[in-house]
Design a protein around this nucleic acid. Structure first.
Lengths: 126, 126
DNA sequence: CGGAATCCTTCACGATACTG
DNA sequence: CAGTATCGTGAAGGATTCCG
């Protein structure tokens, strides 16, 4: 039972947001946006991601049409990854969130400090 | 070992993005943005979320200063949740992603269909 | 009504080893 | 080099029960 009471596309939108909000997908998109083209092990080294997760995440991104995979049948083999136009197009809204995060991290940290201090007081008075 | 090779704030930004990308956090923010004020069980009913996850997620959002919790010591008790200004402020960038998702869902679906069909062909030829 | 505590299952993820 | 396959663990999340 899903019960998306808000709107009927919320499920799909959330699906996309989950993909974007996913740790590795986002970092891969950012990296490819920055370097344009990267090989498998370059991404692996840059992100500090396990082979397994990199392989899985890249496959998802490729399937969703966000990333282009180019296989060069040389020896040793060489595989290059780049953003598709679709992948490029998500960078702008992604940056919006990133900018918001940067702008509001201090506020979030302050809120957390307040919250934790308050809870601490409540616990002492018990 | 975290190894954020991209930028030093990437860890924190990703933290925020994970919160936003999280299924329930996002849906709660959207719901509170739509209805302004909601009680615990109203949110529960609207979202089809378990008590446990709703409680945990609301606490996180409150701690981060995104959501305001108001306790009315009546009988029976009544607790109301609403967005703080900080919570309100994330709605705009969130909408950007939502709009992107809506606009590009057909492209994503098409890409998936292409990908799956291609993989199917490859498997047949084996 | 609005939670907190407990239990239990699933699975996301990393580490490791193997292959073309 | 660029993966796939397998295994083990911790954490996420639902169901249930109890409490102020």
């Amino acid at each position: 039972m899903k019960a998306e009471g808000t709107c009927k596309d919320c499920g799909r939108i959330n699906e996309v947001l989950s993909r974007v909000g996913d740790r590795w997908s986002m970092l891969i998109i950012i990296s490819l946006g920055t370097y344009n083209v990267l090989r498998f092990n370059e991404l692996k080294r840059i992100l500090g991601i396990s082979q397994r997760m990199l392989s899985l995440t890249l496959r998802e991104l490729e399937r969703d049409g966000m990333v282009n995979r180019t296989y060069h049948p040389t020896i040793p083999p060489k595989v290059e990854y780049a953003l598709t136009p679709l992948g490029e197009s998500i960078r702008a809204p992604l940056r919006q969130i990133g900018d918001w995060a940067l702008d509001n991290l201090p506020a979030i940290d302050a809120a957390r400090a307040r919250y934790d201090a308050q809870k601490e007081l409540e616990r002492e008075s018990a």
